[in-house]
């Protein structure tokens, strides 16, 4: 499974309030409505950059803060195809798996080399990130098989609809 998108570089500790503020979440919970406010308190112009089919490239602790699943859902709806970061907050990581948004942990050294606007290709099966402008790549640890299966289907709901079972049903992971 390969994903290609344009790098949008962000910093450390990008929290879920920055991704989609609670203020809006308490006005509406319709994802397509919320998408208008993505990263509003960080940089309102970011949403146009995301829309072209993007890969967010961030530092550590991406998605920290609230458990709001609207965060990965809004990012996905806003045009984000994958997120590459030094580390992810755990609830955000799990939510992303469930909604079928790939999150890839990459070493800081490589993240620093990627420039905003670079075209990136991510191979989830092989576990590799390519920067197509710089012509460099890095190995990343691939997802456990059952998570890859969920991502491949576009989220846990799609997986369940297809197999009428969860990947963890009746077996050890």
């Amino acid at each position: 499974m390969k994903i290609t998108g344009i790098a949008v570089k962000l910093g450390n500790h990008i929290n879920t309030d920055l991704i989609i503020s609670g203020k809006h979440k308490y006005r509406t919970q319709v994802i397509s409505e919320l998408t208008k406010y993505v990263f509003e308190d960080l940089d309102p112009k970011l949403k146009d950059k995301l829309a072209i089919g993007s890969v967010i490239v961030a530092g550590k602790n991406f998605g920290c803060g609230s458990s709001r699943e609207q965060a990965p859902r809004v990012l996905k709806a806003a045009g984000v195809r994958a997120i590459v970061a030094e580390s992810f907050a755990r609830i955000f990581f799990r939510n992303s798996v469930n909604v079928g948004l790939p999150t890839i942990v990459v070493n800081l050294e490589y993240i620093r080399k990627i420039k905003d606007g670079d075209s990136l290709t991510i191979d989830l099966i092989e576990g590799r990130v390519f920067d197509n402008e710089l012509g460099i790549d890095t190995k990343v640890s691939p997802y456990p098989k059952f998570i890859l299966d969920i991502i491949n289907d576009g989220g846990i709901a799609e997986y369940y609809k297809r197999f009428n079972a969860f990947p963890w049903d009746g077996k050890l992971l």
């Binding site: 458990s67 699943e69 990965p72 799990r94 939510n95 469930n98």
Partner: peptide, 13 residues
């Protein structure tokens, strides 16, 4: 803490 889909999975199963 979990997101809504994990909560839904727990509620359902």
């Amino acid at each position: 803490g979990v997101g809504s889909t994990d909560a839904a999975l727990a509620m359902a199963t």
